[in-house]
Design a protein around this nucleic acid. Structure first.
Lengths: 326, 326
DNA sequence: CTGTTAGCGCTTTCAT
DNA sequence: ATGAAAGCGCTAACAG
């Protein structure tokens, strides 16, 4: 920059002002500086600028793991949206390990990211909130928080379950089971709540024996479904915690010689890419991962500029009917 | 840091030395400084450190898009490996858009990342190499480059195709088709080359009419397979550019009333997660996305420290036999 | 072993 | 409209 100033016969400040577009400068000077800049191929150092301005135009994204397509799509949306707003994105996989998450949050803070987006955090409030205090702004995806601590993007999971139940009841399925997923999952609990509420609202009894928790992988879905359908062959509709679990359930049905959807209708949550490709293709509740990520970034930027007092966005899932339900 | 120095009754320099572990210091001083640091909760600013040292402990990762599970897994591996070496990772999706890629490369350079890993770049050498010159180190995945410009991680795609062909010939499939993928893909050309060479080496004629290019998506695979199998019902083995294309081919077989693998054996490349889940499960050539990413980072770090003159790593694909071949 | 003096490359006062 | 000086928070180079 000193070189540019010298070549253009002005001071560093003038160059700085012209390049950052702040303050006035006479057209001929502007012209001259720009000419020198492009002749010398000068490009300012983001580092030095950040040190001086205390803004990095950088944000942090914390996800459990990218090999989960759900988070991969979300991360893609975050990065695109950030990019469109001149922000770059630091990525951290934390594998649902609270210690790693804490370390990531510290590392990002040390790098002075302007804000951070955290997906499906497993940290308890007492750990999480103080860590968030170090940031100018934070947004949580799929985890509530007080509006002054962080913004929140939520999915109306209860409503999703309600749509699933309604769809099955409409198809005359009256004995519904639920593979409820991990008990410590925020989504899992909301989906369970919605399932129970929808059945009760429709006037059907809720048999707790038809609700089984399970881990969120194919194997667990398979085992849970085998167990449930084995004990209760009368079940003719199965709502699953997510598509992964549902794929396990589909496999269990095949093993048990049950036809899907004729004997048992199966429905998942999330609409991951695989849902469309398994046989039979899976009916599911779609929530746009793109919207999730894009909204998270927008909310984060709003909060950085104190533009907006909005503190929570709730995205509605949408029923996507495929072959696994009538 | 000034505060810490004052509280501990030493100079800033001493604090700096102790915290960065460089140079000597007397045990009591060390003790005292550490005490003050933790009492004050002091954490050094990466930004200032980077400005002074000219190292950011940061690397850039450029991928086409994360919603492709192949790159998502790769990105995960890169981020983990970088993290294990105290590096943080900037992520950029460039959607195979050369302009976007150029912009990303510039942005990362402006941020002074220590090195960059670029996957499946579409930039021509003349554009790419000068852009790489701005970096201390660069590694290309799936694209060759002179050793002084960038390190390279390659996949032995030709060998992969050879394994596929050998497997099919062993199963008495003698009329083999190839859905060859995009003509401008480096992998695509290598896979084609390997296919042809393997057939010739085994003494079978190569019928160019059985080799059809196609885009790398399910729809394109479907169309290409329908076309090929429609024109040439004698084809009883089908090698596909990748698993995505193969899934399209599987679907085409179903539509045409062909049994897989009895009428036609189908084999993909890459072993994406879906390959295992489609029906019939897909035989494919696995290359570990984890290894790809981890090796890329290790090579990058080696090059940063000029530790190692290794300039190319070639990963061998492995045949994974599932249900789509006998 | 520890302190002093200069920067790293930019932006921010405040003058002029 | 432009310039001079100071400083962001750290480390490098040299003393002592």
């Amino acid at each position: 920059m000193t070189d540019v100033a010298r070549e253009a016969g002005v001071s560093k400040q003038t160059v700085s002002r012209i390049l950052s577009g702040k303050g006035e400068a006479s057209p001929p000077t502007i012209e001259r500086v720009h000419e020198v800049v492009s002749r010398l191929g000068y490009r300012p150092s983001s580092l030095a600028r950040s040190l001086a301005t205390n803004r990095t135009l950088t944000l942090g994204l914390i996800v459990p793991n990218l090999s989960n397509p759900y988070f991969a799509e979300l991360a893609e949306a975050v990065e695109i949206t950030a990019w469109e707003n001149s922000y770059n994105t630091f990525l951290c996989n934390i594998f649902r390990d609270p210690e790693r998450e804490e370390a990531a949050l510290q590392a990002l803070e040390d790098r002075q990211v302007d804000g951070v987006i955290i997906c499906s955090t497993r940290l308890v409030d007492k750990k999480l909130f103080p860590l968030l205090a170090g940031y100018q702004a934070a947004v949580l995806v799929n985890r509530p928080a007080p509006g002054d601590v962080a913004g929140t993007i939520m999915i109306d999971d209860a409503r999703g379950s309600a749509l699933a139940v309604a769809h099955l009841l409409r198809a005359q399925r009256r004995v519904l089971g639920l593979l409820a997923g991990p008990p410590n999952s925020v989504s899992g609990r909301a989906r369970l709540r919605g399932f129970v509420a929808a059945l009760e609202a429709a006037g059907y009894p809720v048999d707790r024996d038809l609700i089984v928790p399970c881990r969120a992988d194919i194997e667990a879905g398979y085992e849970a479904a085998r167990g449930l359908l084995g004990r209760h062959p009368e079940v003719n509709g199965l709502v699953c915690f997510n598509d992964i679990v549902a794929i396990g359930a589909l496999r269990a049905c095949r093993t048990l010689g049950l036809e899907v959807p004729d004997d048992v209708a199966v429905i998942g949550h999330d609409d991951i890419p695989m849902a469309e490709l398994v046989t039979p293709a899976l009916t599911t509740l779609r929530v746009s991962k793109y919207d999730l990520g894009a909204n998270a970034v927008r909310m984060l930027l709003d909060r950085l500029q104190a533009r907006n007092r909005q503190t929570e966005i709730v995205l509605k899932p949408e029923l996507v009917v495929r072959e696994s339900t009538p």
